[in-house]
Amino acid sequence: MNVVEVENLWVSYGKVVAVRGISFAIPRGEVFGFIGPNGAGKSSTIKVLATLMPKFAGKARIAGVDVRTDPNDVRQRMGYMPDFFGVYDDLTVKEYLHFFAAAYRLPMAKRAGVVDDVLELTDLTHKLTAPVDSLSRGMKQRLALARVLLHDPELLLLDEPASGLDPRARIEMRELLKALSGMGKTILISSHILHELGQFCSRIGIVEAGQLVAEGSLEEIYHKLSLTRVVHLQIANTTSELCQKIRDLPGVRELEEQTDRISVRLDEGIVSLEDFHDRVYQLGGRIRMFQAEAMDMETAFMKLTEGKTA
């Protein structure tokens, strides 16, 4: 069953259209990474799901509950962590968590136990009586995550949770999110720190200018992009005749002769990397270097987006 369903979502701020017909679905237990440049429409989409954006077109449902018609029910089912801290500096950690426990109408008898649990999970138990103001940035972010977990929501909406954190705090946050994923939580996380998402997202959606330009598992997106993968070759006996023969091979879309190498743009739907290697060898090429361009998330992102904003 899908926990999140978004169909043809449109969001506008006055004359500016921030989201243009985005559709996606997130099955239960999945970690969905929302990637895109600043101003792409990630936060607007998340805000719609967090019931903070009453004016939008299209459909948005959480666990089958319509965000527009039943926001109160939706609020019980999700936890939203914005890209800023959203903490009361004049409260202690304990007061802060009890404050939101009361806001979520947790039964009195359960509150102390729940607060202890979320503090333990976020490793903040030793800061129970510390003023929120005295916490480091990373700790504040973990406290915000603890707050999100108080009412045990099935969906976590995390908008840039690692934004502004130092490397250690980012790693701690990542481990925490992995743990939550292991607990079966469905997570929608937005970020532009791409390689971090790649480590624990089961699926990603790449957004640009308010549109979803790619969506799927990492492998699917890589596969889709690698259809035109670039292969760098160094051949000891390169001649223009050999280059022409390679150019004529099936699946070779383009060949560029460079000073120390030739670059071949290969259609992997027609010929695999291994077969291409064999064919060059069969043509008499003495291969010194065969390097297919690595397809990581940043490459995928750069390939799929043009840096446009909505």
């Binding site: 805000k47 019931t51 609020r75 914005p82 959203g86 903490v87 500096d89």
Partner: peptide
């Protein structure tokens, strides 16, 4: 204080 958004997502 940027807490209004957070409050609005509670019941």
């Amino acid at each position: 204080r940027q807490t209004l958004d957070v409050l609005l997502t509670t019941p």
